[in-house]
Design a protein around this nucleic acid. Structure first.
Lengths: 127, 127
DNA sequence: TCGATAATGATATCCTATTATCAATAGAAG
DNA sequence: CTTCTATTGATAATAGGATATCATTATCGA
């Protein structure tokens, strides 16, 4: 809500940069770890604050998975879905989507959005 | 783990009955409310215990949705997915499934299971 | 009908992601 | 360089679902 200013800080820059470059959705813990390599002593609260602001600005989207901490990813990727590896717990983007999902729904049900989660073992952990 | 006995109680009977007859996945709160109509003073702990036991026995399955309490449903329904109404929060079964999901995944990724969640407004709330 | 003990219900506790608090720090305007 | 105050970081507090505890109750075999 605060329309206050928006000072440029190294921690925010680092976090934005990590999110921009990320090739998969990252949790707060992952963000903290990644950005900590550049920012000595980065705190969790700062990560949560930055994530909150970026969500408000619509620059990132939340990827929610049952029983898992929320992941975040750039919002400019277009419609897609996700895959979670049961070994390393990482979440990956899956391009494409079956849009014929709608026809599964009974009449009178209005579908506004959907999410598809795939679970299995990722390429790295398959080796 | 306990291989202990398994006494027949009215609360368990009521809960099993509610789950058997349910036409959609029910949360612990919904189970409690439904079964309370028959069992005076039914407690939450009992519902959790019954649900736990039924899960162990494989008689029911958990339906997990991000940010929502887990729902439970009979495990003999066959593969299907779910729809949640944004008005009443209820979850409904959606028959059928797009099995071509697998082909969306990059090579070397092994898909073991998937879940599809549809969100929108149910028939009742559409009126 | 008794007795051993599983099951129940009320409630305290845990868990874990997220938010709030507050003193210390550091952008940035002048 | 100073000053103002947004931002930070450490940590306490919150929230909500699920589990543990324990005295009381009720099931069921003898």
């Amino acid at each position: 809500m605060a329309t206050g200013s928006n000072r440029k800080t190294k921690q925010r820059d680092a976090l934005v940069s990590v999110l921009e470059r990320a090739e998969r959705p990252l949790s707060v813990a992952e963000l903290l770890e990644a950005a900590s390599k550049r920012i000595e002593g980065l705190g969790v609260a700062t990560v949560y604050r930055a994530v909150g602001a970026l969500l408000d600005d619509g620059r990132i989207d939340a990827v929610e998975i049952p029983g898992e901490p929320t992941r975040y990813e750039r919002s400019d990727k277009g419609h897609h879905h996700h895959f979670q590896c049961e070994k390393c717990d990482r979440v990956f983007d899956i391009a494409g989507c079956l849009d014929n999902l709608r026809k599964l729904v009974p009449p009178k049900f209005r579908v506004k959005q959907h999410s598809v989660m795939l679970y299995g073992v990722c390429a790295t952990c398959s080796r």
